[in-house]
């Protein structure tokens, strides 16, 4: 479905007003996403997860330097093809709830998403209603403004907007942030269901444990680099089948596992010495 080949991204950094440096945000990052799978991309804040999403969508700020190749369904995904496919084949569920327009009623926004995906206006209203119903948003929520929705409802509206576009590749950026366990489960289940329909879902999160129940494969990211891509089932017991020390340490650091933080620091030090 989507292949990322040796993708490097640099953004300008102004150390002082006359000097421009380039900060490397993605470093030769490679990834393949198959149809029907939920691929979790896990990493700490600042690992470059959201920038990866923007790079796939082609929504990076203009002075960015991008190297490497993206392929979507076997063909190169360049800027013009991204523009063509955005909203139709590629959909993004943004991280921030402020992505909902505060001045527009929910259903109208979902309708706009449907229209932008190329559906005729007459059908779009109906489709948006179906999508919202699908995510259990009642008539009141459909006519509500963004500030009247709870975090979980707003998250489901954003998911409905990606759903209504009928995109084949959905990128969900931190969809479980700030939600209680019940709401989180609903949102994650919705993503799993998209994958079950044959779509590809890239789930960006820093909660490894939240991602595991629904993910098929997990990619661990660190400082813009790929650490390891492993099947979700590798994250169990002591994580012995994980090949990389960082991902193993990340797994072991979880509270209900060993809750161990020493392992990584010792290994880190060794790495630094080496």
């Amino acid at each position: 479905m989507l292949t990322i080949d040796q993708l490097s991204l640099q953004l300008p950094l102004y150390a002082s007003w006359w000097k421009r440096d380039w900060a490397t945000c993605l470093d030769e990052f490679s990834l393949t996403v198959f149809p029907g799978e939920v691929h979790a991309v896990v990493g700490a804040s600042g690992a470059g997860k959201s920038l990866l999403a923007y790079a796939i969508m082609g929504l990076l700020p203009t002075p960015a330097r991008l190297n490497g190749q993206l392929y979507y369904q076997g063909k190169p995904l360049n800027a013009s093809r991204q523009r063509q496919l955005r909203g139709r084949e590629l959909a993004l569920i943004p991280q921030s709830l402020s992505a909902l327009d505060p001045l527009v009623r929910t259903q109208r926004q979902v309708t706009w998403a449907a229209q932008r995906a190329g559906q005729p206006s007459a059908h779009a209203w109906h489709a948006s209603q179906q999508a919202l119903d699908h995510y259990q948003l009642d008539a009141r929520a459909q006519q509500a403004y963004a500030h009247e929705l709870s975090g979980g409802m707003a998250r489901r509206v954003l998911t409905a907007m990606a759903h209504v576009s009928q995109a084949k590749l959905v990128i969900a950026d931190e969809p479980s942030v700030g939600l209680d366990p019940h709401q989180r489960q609903r949102v994650l289940d919705a993503l799993r269901e998209l994958a079950n329909q044959g779509k590809s879902v890239i789930l960006i999160t820093h909660h490894l444990r939240h991602a595991l129940p629904i993910a098929d494969r997990v990619t661990i990211m660190r400082d813009g680099k790929l650490v390891e891509t492993a099947p979700a089932c590798a994250f169990q017991d002591s994580g012995a089948s994980l090949t990389n020390a960082y991902s193993q340490a990340l797994w072991l650091a979880l509270p209900d596992n060993a809750f161990a933080t020493t392992a990584i620091s010792r290994r880190e030090q060794e790495a630094h010495v080496a």
């Binding site: 909203g87 959909a91 943004p94 402020s98 706009w112 932008r116």
Partner: peptide, 13 residues
């Protein structure tokens, strides 16, 4: 430059 516009661009607007 807001999140609203970025989201709209992501929808293909």
């Amino acid at each position: 430059r807001s999140d609203v516009a970025t989201h709209a661009f992501a929808q293909g607007a």
